[in-house]
């Protein structure tokens, strides 16, 4: 327990139990700065629950989650965001009725209190930042469009953009390419690799090709525990992983 401040994220002995069912059991999980980590595993392995626990959506039964040495399990959801943890949900979770610009502005990390939001000024700096992020997610020419009219892939990118604008140090993405076309997957892989420069990213994914395209260390979860960890080739060779997840 002594050296866990060296990690960006250090999860130790994490357990969550839903009416006796342990979705995550005694999990230890460490991440370095600027690391891209992919979490894979069969359905019900606890992948989404792990993200829920980190971002505070679900409260841990036992164990600790330390982010830059700060305990997250005691913080409320919005405070965890303030610490620098961003979370993308599995289904694109954007504000369909607002424009792309407004969506990005709604995540801009200023004016987060009631009175701050009332007095918030859309100055040059804000507009500039929104344009920069929109360029990164290839939506700069859609800023005035109603977000609900975007394609599925563009909605996923928009949500990623909404996280980027907060400049999180840890970005957590739950199946970011689900429902995307092959070319969209390719572009998303490029985007993720680019944005993982200078920040840590956790990606939950099923698609092994996409996992390979991302590179980075892979953690395999099974029944709430870590089954294997390592680079993609090692994991693919692992007998347990083949048995419970990849198949023969």
């Amino acid at each position: 327990m002594s050296s866990n401040t060296d990690f960006l994220l250090a999860i130790e002995g994490l357990t969550v139990s839903f009416d006796g069912f342990k979705a995550i059991e005694g999990l230890n999980f460490y991440m370095d700065e600027s690391e891209l980590r992919v979490v894979i595993g069969p359905n019900g392995a606890g992948k989404t629950t792990l993200l829920d626990l980190i971002c505070g959506k679900t409260k841990a039964t036992e164990g600790s989650i330390k982010f830059r040495g700060k305990e997250l399990t005691q913080l409320r959801e919005h405070r965890i965001v303030w610490e620098g943890v961003g979370r993308k949900f599995q289904n694109p979770s954007i504000y369909e009725g607002l424009s792309v610009f407004d969506n990005l502005e709604a995540s801009y990390p200023e004016g987060r209190s009631v009175f701050g939001a009332l007095a918030f000024k859309r100055d040059e700096q804000v507009v500039q930042r929104i344009h920069n992020v929109a360029r990164e997610i290839q939506l700069e020419d859609r800023l005035d469009m109603e977000a609900g009219l975007l394609s599925h892939g563009q909605k996923q990118w928009l949500e990623i953009g909404m996280l980027l604008i907060q400049e999180p140090e840890l970005l957590m993405l739950d199946e970011p390419v689900a429902g995307m076309s092959a070319s969209e997957r390719q572009e998303t892989a490029t985007l993720l690799k680019r944005i993982s420069q200078g920040r840590s990213v956790i990606v939950i994914e099923h698609d092994m090709e996409f996992v390979a395209a991302l590179g980075g260390k892979v953690t395999v979860l099974h029944q709430g525990k870590i089954l294997a960890e390592g680079d993609i080739e090692t994991v693919k060779q692992n007998k347990h992983v083949i048995d419970v997840y990849l198949g023969h």
């Binding site: 971002c55 959506k57 409320r76 959801e77 919005h78 965001v81 303030w82 961003g86 979370r87 949900f89 979770s93 954007i94 504000y95 369909e96 009725g97 607002l98 407004d102 502005e105 709604a106 995540s107 990390p109 004016g111 987060r112 209190s113 009631v114 939001a117 009332l118 007095a119 918030f120 859309r122 949500e159 909404m162 907060q166």
Partner: peptide, 24 residues
């Protein structure tokens, strides 16, 4: 104001607003 847009946003997607750092 931005408050107004956040208000509409939280009506439609409360979780997204909460996990964007707002005390809903």
């Amino acid at each position: 104001s931005k408050y107004g847009r956040i208000l509409t946003a939280l009506r439609d997607r409360e979780d997204r607003v909460r996990f964007s750092g707002y005390d809903v």
